[in-house]
Amino acid sequence: MELQDLWFGLIAILFIGFFFLEGFDYGVGMLLPFLGKNDRERRVIINTIGPVWDANEVWMITAGGAIFAAFPQWYATMFSGFYLALVFILLALIVRGVAFEFRSKDENPRWRATWDWAIFFGSALPALLWGVAFGNLVKGTPINAEMTFTGNLLDLLSPYTLIAGAAGFVVFLLQGAIFLSLKTDGVIRRRAEALAPTLWIVVVAVAAVLAIANYAYINIFDKIGVNPGVMPVASSAALLAVGYYLRQKQFGWAFALTGVTILLSVATFFWFLYPNVMVSSTNEAFNLTVNNAAASQKTLEVMTVVALVFVPIVLIYQGWSYWVFRKRLTADSSLEY
């Protein structure tokens, strides 16, 4: 295996980590105004992700940095090409991060309501736009021979990419609801438990549409034929099992299997994409691939050593931080946010 293939895989892992962790944390943010009926309840909801949201977000930053280091051409084309979409994602994430820190530091109800909506929109917009962005990578966008994106914002919005965006959006909502059912008690837990099965039905419906859209809008047939292979099938099976466990009120299993669904869906996406990193709809010859977009072997070697040493260390201490804050929160818990 070449180093650029290894790095394609590592970037896939970083995005899997990001969607797995930030998925429920976006979901919690989106559910905040609906599952928290009063201020104390909303504080409990925010505090369930309080100690961890910041480190979850670092998975995205690291994925961005890794694309820059390992595939500078991919970084340059995607980030300049998806310019306005990224501006919206950045604004959303800026406002969201500040909102967590600021909302409970003043008693004024209008102050708190404003930041609560900032958390809602700051979570909902990226949850939707990441799916749209990934849909575009695999579907293809206008890219010329100089690897420059030549389209505009409207080129990025198509039925397929919007379905991909919706899929991410609803699966994060579901994972957020399941997470809250595991991390809270009392009334919030009951509401989250009641909502999750409904959300699951929506997720199954959108996932079915996405599966069909994959055949209708992108050339999956050419690549893999009718049989989609083990990953997407396993992903679908995991999603269906989530429904079973939700009915059994086994929310730990439901959370784990939704996680598996996310993991396998993102992995399937990267497998569809490979060996391309961005498809050109202008001309197949202009596709950015793991070879023509990659950094030099020297840089990839350095980065490989760094990643192999530090990724395990990060996993250990981030895992430990989840273990520290494993307890359920109730309205009587002492809250920071």
């Binding site: 820059f68 980065m303 760094v306 530090f310």
Partner: peptide
């Protein structure tokens, strides 16, 4: 790109 990625990691 390398120092930026290393900074994150």
């Amino acid at each position: 790109g390398a120092p930026l990625a290393i900074e994150a990691l």
